[in-house]
Simulated scan of single mutants.
Amino acid sequence: RKKETPLPFISTKKRLKLKVLDRNGQAVNRAKVLVGSTTRYTNSAGTLHLFPSVDDTQNIDSITIVNQVVPINFDTTNEKTITINNVATAVKSLDLMFVIDTTGSMSDEMEYLAKEFESIVSNIKAKYPDVNIRFGLTLYKDKGDDYVVKDFAFTSETQKMKEQLAAQSANGGGDYPEAMDKGIQKGLDASWAAEDGVRIMFLVADAPPHDEDMKKMLPLIKEARDKAVRIYPIGASGVAEKAEFIMRHLALLTEGRHLFLTDDSGIGNSHEEPKVACYQVTRLDQLIRRVLESELSGKRVEATKDELIRTVGSYNNGICTPSKSSNTNN
C-alpha cells in the first residue's frame, strides 16, 4: 500500500490581528503593510492577520503602514489598532474569480452555479451600482482528463460569464485527488486589477490535491497574500478530512472564510457532517451574495430569519460558543 504523504503543517495559533483606521475612525481597505521585505494588505474591514509561520516576521521589530513606521513585538502582541492620517474611500471595484473542479462528481454544483450566477450578480449590482465588477473563470480536472486546467480571462460582461459557465460539463477524474494546486495557480496568474477594491476567489471543490503536490499549497497561500486575493473555498459533496484541512487553511490564511454545502442543499451527493460546533444553513446563492456584500461593505452580513434553513449550535454573528462537550475542531 502506498504510504500517504503527511499533511503540511502550518502553525496558525500564533497570529497578530492588525486593524487600520483612518483619521475619522473608518476602516481602511487595502492599506499597504510592509513587514520586512514582504507586502501585505488589509481587507475591506481594515483588518489584516499576520502569521509568523507565513509572513517571515522573525527579527522584525516594526512594520510600515502607508508610510507610517509602527514599532511592534510579535512575541507579545496579539492585536493592535493603528490610526493613519488618511481618509478611507468606498470600495470601487471587485474582481471575482471562480476556480472550479469540473470532474464527474461536480456536475450538480456546476449546473447550480450556471443557473444562479446572473441572479447573484444582479442583486449585488443593484446594491452597489458604482462598483466595477469583473468575472474570471478557471476550471481544472486532473492528468489524463481532456484537460488539466482551462481558463477564461476576466470580463465585465455578466452574460458572457454566464454563457461560459453554462457551456462547461463535469466529467473525468476517477481517483479521489485532483489538480487543485494547478487550478489555484492558474487563477492567481490571471490579470487581477481592482487596485482600489476587492479581489475574491471562490474555490468550488470536493477533493484535495495529490499527495505529492501538497507541498505547493503554502507557496500558493503566500502568493495569494502577496496579491491580496482572498480565497473562499466552497466544500462540495464528497469533501473528506484531507480536502477540508487544505480548504480551511486556504481560507484562514488568505482572510477568506471556509464555506460548505450540506445535505439541505439538494446539490450533489451526500455531504460530510461539518466539523464545527456551530453553523447556519441557507441557500448557496444567498451565502455567496452575503460574502460579496460583506467584502464590499467591510461589515459582516448575516443571514436574515427568512433565509435561515436551520442553525446548529450557539451561533452569534460569526462567533461560535460551543458547549463543553462540543467538537471544536475548526
Score class of each variant (00 low, 15 high):
residue 240 A to I: 12
residue 211 D to Q: 10
residue 108 D to N: 14
residue 55 D to W: 03
residue 268 G to E: 00
residue 263 D to I: 06
residue 182 K to S: 04
residue 294 S to W: 10
residue 13 K to W: 12
residue 91 V to G: 02
residue 314 S to W: 11
residue 131 V to R: 06
residue 173 G to K: 03
residue 103 T to D: 05
residue 116 E to T: 11
residue 309 I to F: 09
residue 291 V to M: 07
residue 294 S to Q: 10
residue 103 T to W: 03
residue 12 T to P: 04
residue 274 P to S: 10
residue 225 R to D: 06
residue 72 I to H: 08
residue 227 K to Q: 15
residue 36 G to Y: 13
residue 193 A to K: 14
residue 89 T to D: 08
residue 182 K to C: 00
residue 326 S to L: 02
residue 266 G to Y: 08
residue 10 I to A: 05
residue 329 N to Y: 10
residue 258 H to P: 00
residue 316 N to H: 14
residue 165 L to I: 07
residue 29 N to D: 12
residue 67 N to W: 14
residue 314 S to I: 12
residue 323 S to I: 04
residue 99 V to A: 07
residue 329 N to F: 09
residue 80 K to N: 07
residue 117 F to K: 01
residue 43 N to P: 06
residue 243 A to I: 02
residue 256 G to F: 01
residue 178 E to P: 01
residue 320 C to I: 11
residue 258 H to Q: 09
residue 30 R to P: 00
residue 204 V to N: 00
residue 202 F to G: 05
residue 246 I to S: 00
residue 59 N to R: 13
residue 63 I to S: 02
residue 137 L to P: 00
residue 100 I to E: 04
residue 81 T to L: 08
residue 186 K to W: 01
residue 164 Q to L: 14
residue 96 L to Y: 06
residue 154 F to A: 04
residue 145 D to Y: 08
residue 244 E to S: 13
residue 206 D to R: 01
residue 282 T to F: 03
residue 22 D to F: 08
residue 264 D to K: 09
residue 230 R to L: 01
residue 16 L to R: 04
residue 77 T to R: 11
residue 249 H to I: 03
residue 25 G to D: 12
residue 209 P to D: 08
residue 284 L to D: 03
residue 149 V to E: 08
residue 146 D to N: 12
residue 21 L to T: 07
residue 30 R to D: 07
residue 294 S to K: 10
residue 110 M to G: 00
residue 204 V to A: 04
residue 199 R to Q: 12
residue 23 R to G: 03
residue 37 S to M: 10
residue 256 G to N: 07
residue 138 T to R: 00
residue 123 N to G: 05
residue 283 R to Y: 13
residue 25 G to C: 09
residue 248 R to E: 10
residue 226 D to Y: 06
residue 214 M to Y: 15
residue 289 R to P: 00
residue 141 K to Q: 14
residue 11 S to A: 14
residue 134 R to Q: 15
residue 155 T to E: 05
residue 31 A to K: 01
residue 230 R to T: 10
residue 149 V to K: 05
residue 1 R to A: 14
residue 2 K to N: 13
residue 93 S to I: 04
residue 184 I to T: 02
residue 190 A to I: 00
residue 253 L to N: 03
residue 152 F to I: 02
residue 309 I to E: 13
residue 189 D to W: 04
